[in-house]
Computed example of a mutant assay.
Amino acid sequence: MTLFQIALLAAAGFAASTINALAGGGTFVTFAALVASGLPTLDANATSAVALTPANLASVAAYRSEVRLHYREMIPFAILGLLGGVGGALLLIWIGDGGFRPLVPWLLLVATVMFALGDRIRKIVEPWSKGQHTVAKLVAYGVMAVVSIYGGFFGAGVGIMMLAALSIVTSDDYHKSNATKIVVAFLIQVVSSALLIAGGLVHWPQALVTIAASILGGYFGVSVARRIPAKIIRAAVVTIGAVLTVIFFIRT
């Protein structure tokens, strides 16, 4: 790697884990940086997933108060995350780079739209969260199961969908929802990363640079989440996602 690539990946890792601690979407940044550094799309996706896993652990540690207080309620979502992460990673390995590359612009488009409509999605599910209906809860668990598989496969946009589903069962407690999201995302990445490493898709020099920077961002990001409105970060993520979507549609 050149010094420029090292600096690019370090900046991307720090920014991505900070964004993930707030609302999700950091995968946009690391995926783009890894592709820009010369990795194939499949390898960039796998390396990004592995690189951001320690940062999610740092964010879990920063949210330790919420985790201790609500850990029993997090268990069902944690199980869904583990199972979904395995399923998504196995699917990714199975289709290979030839199958993954044509999907990239569409995955980026879906993830970008999710972020752009994040506030509207939460408004739609808000009446359900107040009623705490059994059907609403089943829908929340179903969405979390699907999102967990998607998280093991690609991951960009997974945070906003998790927050929307979790808002149904956690009412207006944003930090409870965000802590649960971070725990589940961490578990998804742990199991999917293990499979991606076993599949030989991870480029370790690039991963280690990103990991070192992302750990700092993962812990720092929670303090950002407590003070800065999510709209500011979300606008930046949507912009990045839109630009990447156009670029990959042109390249594909």
Rank of each mutant, 00 (worst) to 15 (best):
M1L: 13
F4Q: 14
A7E: 08
L8W: 00
F14P: 01
T18R: 00
N20C: 07
N20W: 00
L22M: 14
G24R: 03
V29Q: 00
T30E: 08
F31A: 07
G38F: 12
G38D: 11
L39M: 11
L39W: 10
P40D: 13
P40F: 11
N45E: 09
A46I: 08
T47Y: 10
S48D: 10
S48P: 02
S48W: 01
V50F: 10
L52K: 06
L52P: 05
P54S: 08
N56Y: 10
N56W: 04
N56K: 14
A58L: 03
S59F: 06
A61P: 00
A61M: 14
A61N: 10
R64M: 13
V67H: 02
Y71G: 05
R72H: 13
E73T: 11
I75H: 08
G81R: 02
G84K: 02
G85A: 08
G85E: 03
G85I: 00
G85C: 05
V86C: 01
V86F: 02
A89K: 05
L90M: 14
L90Y: 10
I93P: 01
I93A: 11
W94R: 15
D97P: 01
G99L: 11
R101V: 04
P102D: 14
L103S: 07
L103Q: 09
L109N: 10
L109D: 09
T112Q: 09
T112N: 10
M114G: 12
G118H: 06
D119F: 12
D119W: 12
R120S: 13
K123A: 14
K123H: 13
V125C: 06
V125Q: 04
E126G: 04
E126H: 15
S129W: 04
T134W: 15
V135M: 12
V135I: 11
A136Y: 08
A140R: 00
G142F: 06
V143H: 02
V143Q: 07
V146A: 12
I149A: 04
Y150L: 05
Y150K: 03
G152H: 00
F154P: 02
G157T: 04
G157Y: 01
M161E: 02
A165D: 00
L166S: 01
S167P: 00
I168F: 06
T170M: 14
D172E: 12
D173C: 04
Y174K: 09
T180H: 01
I182V: 15
A185L: 09
L187M: 09
V191C: 07
V191L: 10
L195I: 14
L195W: 11
L195G: 13
L195A: 12
L196A: 07
I197W: 05
G200L: 13
V202D: 09
P205T: 13
P205V: 11
Q206D: 13
A207N: 03
A207R: 04
A207Q: 02
L208S: 14
L208P: 07
V209Q: 05
A212N: 06
S214Y: 04
L216S: 11
Y219T: 07
F220C: 15
S223Y: 15
R226A: 14
R227G: 07
P229N: 14
A230I: 14
A230P: 03
A230H: 09
K231L: 11
R234P: 01
R234M: 04
A242R: 10
F248V: 04
F249Q: 07
I250R: 15
